[in-house]
Design a protein around this nucleic acid. Sequence first.
DNA 1: CAAGTCGGCAAACAGTTGTTTACTGAATGA
DNA 2: TCATTCAGTAAACAACTGTTTGCCGACTTG
Lengths: 203, 203
Amino acid sequence: MGVRQAQKQQSRRALLDAGLHLLEHQNLSSLGMREVTREAGMSPAGFYRHFRDLAELGVALVEESLASLHGMIRAALAEKGDAEELIDRTVELIAGHVAGHRAHVRFLARERHGGVQPVREAIAAELARFADEVARALGAQPESAGWSGADVRMLAELYVDHMVATAVAFLDADGPAAERRIARTACTQLRLISVGRRHWRDA
Amino acid sequence: MGVRQAQKQQSRRALLDAGLHLLEHQNLSSLGMREVTREAGMSPAGFYRHFRDLAELGVALVEESLASLHGMIRAALAEKGDAEELIDRTVELIAGHVAGHRAHVRFLARERHGGVQPVREAIAAELARFADEVARALGAQPESAGWSGADVRMLAELYVDHMVATAVAFLDADGPAAERRIARTACTQLRLISVGRRHWRDA
DNA sequence: CAAGTCGGCAAACAGTTGTTTACTGAATGA
DNA sequence: TCATTCAGTAAACAACTGTTTGCCGACTTG
């Protein structure tokens, strides 16, 4: 890649980072582009060399944020061990992801139900695909023998929703004590679901 | 109450309704007060006779929205019957609440993680109190014999989170078919949790 | 080295914003 | 009835918004 394209991508990154930084304390729909370019150290008009809209920048941030989250999910699904261990490791993975990608997670939580339609839709679509992926992994486990496809799918949705809720809870933990409390709660809830799963056929 | 105060409260209502209406398609932090007063048929300066801020209007809307949700929760907790029936009735209650209070529910979903701190805090505090209330009700049930207070509390949190998630899902259902699918999923998930609860002690 | 591509800038545009000011006129209460 | 209170108004304020224009100068290509 030439020097030109490299410099351009560097500016693009500056815009994305500026946006991400500003979005830590406000909403995408209340973000101004002058604000973004100012934070990125660029003139207002320069913005248009990279994005048509602020919504377009938003969608780019969604892709970034969900890509990192996707990596975490695949890591969680790849874990091996008995149910108890697996739950603990998953919650640790979530905590680690939040610690390492605060801005991304906060952005997703904010805009998942935010005021910018294309962004909302992009998030919803990708989360649905995550649920598909989890459902596929669950279906391959021996514990799912005799489960209908629809039931596996609803279990996967429950897991994904719970994961997102847990990540958000970690987000506004205001200390290590609060973090541990959230982790314990999440583990217990997952254990409850796991127990329900084992005894599903009895009901 | 005198004619004066009645007229004032009517104007206040107009402002709240205007805000609620505009917030159906945008975020609180992107809302302008000129926009609100225009929608309410009032001059910009008149706003200050009722609220200091837009954040203050937001908090007022939070109180309204959570009051109606609170009513729904109390209704759900008051239901009697076996577990299966109870689950179905609860999900129906949620669906009915969303149908009757779309704007309120959408507002809560948007601003729960939105960019306006006092509003966010008001929602979080009230949802925590709802979890307390649910925990108290669960603790009084015979099924909770032998459960620790902390475990009951985490179960209550799971229920509240799930209720909110279900309400939001109903919100962007785009037809009766989608609504039924969401209701079925929610019921199945609740049944799974219920099974887990019954077999909790075995683990 | 020359011609062309193109990322970034400064300036200007018309609109819109939140907030303050002094005011009007109807409800209030002695 | 007459003075007072006060919800709502119109006008003006500086500050900011998104977008377009023409231009410069560093990179690229031949």
